[in-house]
Design a protein around this nucleic acid. Structure first.
Length: 492
RNA sequence: CGGGGCGUAGCGCAGUCCGGUAGCGCGCCUGCUUUGGGAGCAGGUGGUCGCAGGUUCGAAUCCUGUCACCCCGACCA
């Protein structure tokens, strides 16, 4: 098997492998703007498949799409005290609305006369602009619930950025819902977390642990933050989606009240939930190998590529006829196929390139196959090759795609499960954390202890997980009572 | 913001110490031969050396200033 000489191996430098892979697989690249990426067509095609699936799932759970402004009046952000504290340090601010030619002819400068009365914040998230709007939409219990989602870009001025995992500008969706009762809002937050988990596992083939964040890891302004946590191949955790129960915090901040059936005035209950282009990073780091990307068939822009091998134009014509027929059969089954008959690249180049790009199944037809009515099938997940009959190839490939989808999920799940360990004392914890992976350990429930663990080990509490061991114990650090084991890891 | 790098052809780099005609590999273009795992040969294309000053007969190279980006930390989806 030809190895991609130019791609750093995961075992040598995982971080470098990731950075190189994103660029070499044509997913994204650094832009001329600090911390902001260009998502290239192939990477964007994957994001579009994610979007389409998620959007369908949101619609199926009763949500509708809307769009709110990019710019938020500065005063809005400060209405909710915790919210502004959480985001203030990473906000970009619009202060002027006009440029003018510099007097020395050196270009354009900001026109000082065009200073904005009130500065505008480029949204780091949209709770404030949306709740200021919801105030106008809600008077009665009959106006509830509001179940809105928006697909948008947001900007957070991060100190250090990495393609997809942490960029200053990123694409995401943010759902913002308004409810008449606490129970309904809490159910909504949990429902959407389940949607995320479903998407992660059945489309991204990425196993996740659901749970709730501790106070110090909570979203700024939330009562509860639910999360899905995934484990990357290097043993670090990645928070892959969050769903927040916001209580009445934003309703109170923006004075959003409604009259209930008893003609009583009360504040509206809220949730918000989001996933971002960070999922692209999660997808890459969950499955890919030293030969390049490994994409789950459910999200691969190209599910099957067909490569012809020929000696002359006459033979190519014959092979093309057969390949196009097979492609047509596959497309009838809803499979996306690329027939690559480009004459300017040799087969070996194409093989390596499609492996790098993670195309799940590769079909090869050459002279030998034409004689025998066979075709070579290669699956990207195992790199295994076999030669099969062309008869019924469409059904065979359809089945293989599902098998690959299952196989990469199982592989990731086994890796994840093998890397959930239990620590019964702090010494043991410190040893295990160096090996990476999740650790289930007892904690006394205080932010102080959590902060100390983070300071000393760089590990954070990813969540208080659903399930696992719920028996009480004593904190591994302080020896104080612990309600149950919580999930630790070093994280992205 | 602290520490470390880097800026020279589309990409990756050498040249800078010690000033003297702008180099290499890949790519790209043309042609021929090739095509079952990143093709070979031949010919060709391409750069005001990040920007602005200064020193000098002469600056990619020395000096001053400035900007950008990358990596490691603190911060975070």
């Amino acid at each position: 098997m030809a190895e991609l000489k130019n791609l750093t191996k995961r075992s040598e430098n995982y971080s470098q492998w990731y950075n190189e892979l994103v660029v070499k697989a044509d997913l994204a690249e650094q832009s001329a703007v600090r911390g902001c990426m260009v998502i290239k067509p192939y990477g964007y095609a994957i994001w579009e498949k994610m979007q389409r699936q998620l959007d369908d799932m949101f619609k199926a759970t009763g949500h509708v799409n809307a769009y709110f402004p990019l710019l938020i009046p500065k005063s809005f952000l400060s209405r909710e005290a915790e919210h502004v504290e959480g985001f203030a340090k990473e906000c970009a601010v619009v202060t002027h609305y006009r440029l003018k030619n510099a007097e020395d002819g050196s270009g354009v400068v900001v026109d000082p006369a065009a200073r904005l009365e009130e500065e505008l914040i480029i949204r780091p998230t949209s709770e404030t602009i949306i709740w200021s709007t919801y105030k106008n939409w809600i008077q009665s219990y009959r106006d509830l619930p509001i179940l809105c989602n928006q697909w948008a870009n947001v900007l957070r001025w991060e100190m250090r950025t990495r393609l997809f995992l942490r960029t200053a500008e990123f694409l995401w969706q943010e759902g913002h819902t308004a409810h008449a009762t606490r129970e309904e809002a809490e159910q909504e937050a949990v429902r959407m977390l389940n949607v995320y988990a479903d998407f992660a596992e059945n489309y991204m083939a990425m196993p996740v642990i659901k749970g709730v964040k501790t106070e110090s890891e909570r979203f700024a302004g939330a009562i509860d933050t639910y999360t899905i946590e995934a484990l990357m191949q290097d043993g670090k955790a990645l928070q892959s989606g969050t769903s927040h129960f916001l209580g009445q915090n934003f309703a109170k901040a923006f004075d959003v009240q409604f009259l209930d059936k008893e003609n009583k005035l009360s504040y509206v209950w809220a949730t918000s939930w989001g996933v971002s282009t960070r999922l692209m990073g999660a997808l890459i780091m969950s499955h890919s190998d030293d030969n390049g990307l490994v994409l789950p068939p459910h999200l691969a822009p190209i599910q099957v590529v067909i490569v012809p091998i020929y000696r002359n134009q006459e033979q190519l014509a014959a092979i093309s006829e057969k390949a196009e027929a097979i492609a047509a059969d596959l497309r009838k089954r809803g499979i996306s196929v690329k027939y690559d008959n480009a004459d300017n690249k040799r087969p070996g180049f194409k093989f390596a390139d499609y492996e790098l790009k993670g195309v799940p199944v590769r079909l090869v037809i050459g002279g030998r196959d034409m004689e025998n009515n066979t075709i070579e099938v290669m699956r990207r997940d195992t790199l295994g090759k076999e030669t099969v009959s062309c008869d019924g190839i469409d059904g065979y490939v359809a089945g293989l795609l599902e098998e690959i989808q299952k196989n990469i999920f199982e592989k990731a799940r086994k890796f994840r499960d093998a890397n959930i360990r239990i620590a019964d004392n702090y010494g043991q914890f410190k040893e295990i954390i160096e090996e990476g992976g999740f650790i289930l350990a007892h904690w006394d429930g205080t932010p102080e202890t959590e902060a100390r663990i983070k300071e000393e080990t760089k590990a954070t509490i990813r969540c208080i997980p659903d399930g696992f061991d719920t028996t009480p114990g004593v904190c591994m650090v302080t020896g104080k009572p612990s309600a149950r084991r919580v999930l630790f890891a070093r994280a992205y």
